[in-house]
Amino acid sequence: MNSAYLHIDHVTMNFPTPTGEFCALDDVNFVINKGEYISIIGHSGCGKSTVLNIIAGLLEASQGGIVLESKQIDGPGPERAVVFQNHSLMPWLSVYENVAIAVRRVFKGKKTRKEMHEWILHNLNLVHMDHALDKLPSEISGGMKQRVGIARALAMEPKVLLMDEPFGALDALTRSHMQESLMDIQEKLNNTIVMITHDVDEAVLLSDKIIMMSNGPAADIGQVLEIDLPRPRNRVRLANNPTYNHYRQEVLSFLYERQSNPLSKKSETDEGMSEKNDVSDEAGVVESDTLATDNVTQLSPIDNSGKAA
């Protein structure tokens, strides 16, 4: 435990409400090694984003704390860069300037003007956005905006890269493109990444370790799943890989059987939610058949429809 790079040390989070304290997280404790890609998965409202915001320093834990490289963190900082769900680019700054504002802040006095310029271009090149340097965020697509958001975070050379449902607002096709780009980048840079997601495929495909969270209030870590798949990983080839499908199914059964969606119980009328229920039913069928490949190929389109909603 001493060798841990990032330690989320027994974090409890209480929010004050008019009706008393609301306990969002109860004693969340895990460690992340250097260069590891961690996904945190759970139903909405389980406190995933709270964990990320505490690591980022945007929220302060009620109890416990975050230790990065044996130092307790105190407030937000560029060494823990965040990629926000809705890109969070300044709409009045061009693609180049959006990255530049971060680079100028982080490398002031460390890089010359020319080096900074090259570093900005290098990072935009990494996410394949070097063709739109002078475009405003309103002039590029959602996926491109998120690419620039990732470039901005990478350009800070963070010790930990935090991503809050980075592809959550994108359509399924763009999302898979982005996941592939991210895997390419990760192969080159080997960053330490913590990603929040609610997408099972995304979690299994990208991560070294999946942290599954129980439902709130007082959410906790339900299960930690090590993903031992060789890299580079290929989505199409993995589709029929029994190990990959086993991991997927582990996550699915955790999410939909042991921790059924708290929202779907309350409102069956919500279309998206009821579709998610269908998925969980299908997942149950798959489990009883113990990983027959036929069933698995059947499952993926159904799962996709659930995501698209």
């Binding site: 980022a56 945007l58 900082g77 560029p78 926000f84 971060a102 982080v106």
Partner: peptide, 11 residues
């Protein structure tokens, strides 16, 4: 979110 960006960047 933009305020959060400025916090992360410690502007």
């Amino acid at each position: 979110d933009l305020i959060n960006v400025s916090k992360v960047l410690q502007l």
